[in-house]
Design a protein around this nucleic acid. Structure first.
Lengths: 340, 340
DNA sequence: CATAGTATCGTAAACGTTTACGGAGATCGA
DNA sequence: TCGATCTCCGTAAACGTTTACGATACTATG
């Protein structure tokens, strides 16, 4: 038998619904013996408080939404990227009974409209944004609705909300210094779609660092490609027949580096020998041959920080995370490989 | 300015909340002029009906949950797998105003308990299950709760619910016949974790088909591995030093085939030459060298079918999908490559 | 014994919707 | 002109919780 509402459960126990509710929610004004009875009966009869009723009354849902877009041509990052982040996020949320769900925006729907719709409905108590664009209306939208949110990535259309972003500045400094001091003079960058913010931050810093070595980042060596296998492959081919081929390339997207390897190889070039390749860490990275020189991201820890940062901006939890970083650049450490 | 509830919106327009609600929901008992006014005001003031209130009253949420587990060691499939399926699912759901969300079960929580918790709460009107296990209590659980659901994959603990599963029987027939007639006599299979159902179905049929050719599928040539890069790599190494190495291997998981290639290569074996490799299609498949011989899955179409199948089992939508397949094996077509 | 305090519980309001019901005008047909 | 029908709208109940408030019984204290 399975019980429908708190009313049925209360009738079954011959006590009032108020007491049942208090017993289930761990409130103090309830005899320990009756609490035991209530909990036992709830367990036995499979009662779980209805989400809508509870949310309506409490004004909060206990759900945090992580927005992502379906249609892999757009997102492209390996599932391991997000899955690792989620894993970290959830270890924090579990402590507070919060549930993480992925809000899947169809590739056929406008992301801004989607977010407005789902957020205005009061679906989630907080939002996590990713794939932040250079000009991204979602920030203002969430700000207007006064929904706590954190973004995984920066944007020019910032509204002062908390964020965590990979430290592309630090990465640019490290990688460009390394390549320049190793004698590379023509260095390429492969970055995802131009609307995304991350590529711009990176390239800008690269220019500064290279300038310090008397080098420039040439415009025709900045490649954009879909952040997936196909995109990487295409650039590999393109590099092979490039009029003045670079001696190194830095790849910002983990999803396209294997494609790049294969594209290069198909064109007769050997990564790490004919052209140095440096990328971001992914599960594939250390199984490529040659082993990819890449930046470790510690994604699970990033997820933990992301969750703490969000909670710190939610009134109900802020006190528990007094020293969570508000806006943070996530450091990446270089792992030596054989590719550059 | 942003408006909070239907009450505020109604006051603002000097009409009753009943009329406002009817206007917004497209009911007939409302003057076209006032409907226009209501819609305009709602748009301008950013009003969207509260999810909890609406769900509480209507008894349905308009949300369909797709359950998946975080922690990539377990799932492993490329995000492209699910993202493609989602894309198809959403094109169907969009027609009915249904939203698809991914229910993310932490690797630290028991999947059964998680599902019970979130489903009993009435969070979603319907559920999609994936990564179905041989013995999977989620089926009985959803059945007990009378929640419409469909599974992407079969299970021994079936409860007669609709499902779509890849046609591993058909695949086994095709691939084993092909390999046997090409002279392979020692054929290996790489399948994911033993708890999952799919590997068993496949292997069983393989045995039957091979028997027809006077061959056997030897036990020490059935490999289990995590469905990811690392798992594939490990098996590649293992194959290389196997006492009686097979001349072909069929890989059931798209996430581990690149790892397998690299593992083989690192051990000095060339896929497609020293050992034939046949797998499932993935974005990487056609960029590998040699190009992978693989089975196309048409995942977006699968998603469409999956959605239609679920809707056909929901009373509110069943009439719209009179001839949706109830339990379906999804055909896969072989794409010739250079790997086997 | 009287009173204050405490432990435990029931009652009812409130959260924001949707919708069944009925009522007020307007229109129409005879 | 008068009922009948139709159009449009307001009222109020209901969905399942949580929680403020008050009531009751019991304990402690003098």
């Amino acid at each position: 038998m399975v019980v429908k509402g708190i009313r049925q459960l209360a009738d079954h126990l011959d006590i009032s619904i108020g007491t049942v509710s208090r017993a289930l929610n761990g409130k103090k004004d309830v005899n320990e013996e009756t609490r035991r009875r209530v909990l036992e009966a709830a367990e036995r009869l499979g009662y779980v408080a209805n989400q809508s009723g509870r949310a309506l009354r409490k004004g909060s849902t206990g759900v945090i939404g992580f927005m992502m877009q379906t249609g892999h041509e757009i997102t492209g990052q390996g599932d391991t990227f997000f899955m690792s982040v989620f894993d970290g996020v959830q270890t924090v949320f579990a402590r507070h009974g919060l549930d993480l769900v992925a809000l899947l925006c169809s590739s056929e729907e406008d992301p801004d409209a989607y977010l407005e719709r789902v957020v205005a409905r009061g679906f989630a108590d907080g939002i996590m944004l990713s794939a932040t664009r250079r000009i991204d209306h979602r920030f203002a939208l969430l700000d207007r609705r006064k929904i706590p949110f954190v973004s995984l990535g920066r944007s020019l259309t910032d509204v002062g909300q908390p964020f965590i972003d990979l430290d592309f500045e630090g990465m640019a400094t490290t990688v460009m210094t390394r390549l320049a001091t190793r004698g590379h003079r023509r260095i390429a960058v492969l970055r995802p779609h131009d609307d995304l913010n991350l590529g711009h931050v990176f390239v800008e810093r690269c220019r500064e660092v290279l300038a310090g070595h008397g080098l420039v980042l040439e415009d025709d060596l900045i490649f954009n490609a879909s952040p997936n296998e196909a995109g990487g492959y295409r650039i590999g081919q393109e590099l092979a027949r490039h009029p003045n081929r670079p001696s190194a390339i830095v790849v910002l997207n983990d999803g396209s580096v294997t494609g790049l390897f294969h594209g290069l190889e198909a064109a007769g070039l050997t990564p790490g020998k004919d052209i140095a390749v440096i990328g971001l860490h992914s599960p594939q990275a250390r199984y490529l041959s040659p082993r990819l020189t890449c930046f470790d991201l510690s994604l699970r820890d990033l997820g933990i920080s992301l969750a703490e940062t969000l909670l710190a901006s939610m009134p109900a939890y802020a006190a528990l995370y007094p020293d969570a970083a508000h806006r943070q650049l996530w450091p990446m450490t270089l792992i030596d490989g054989d590719s550059g």
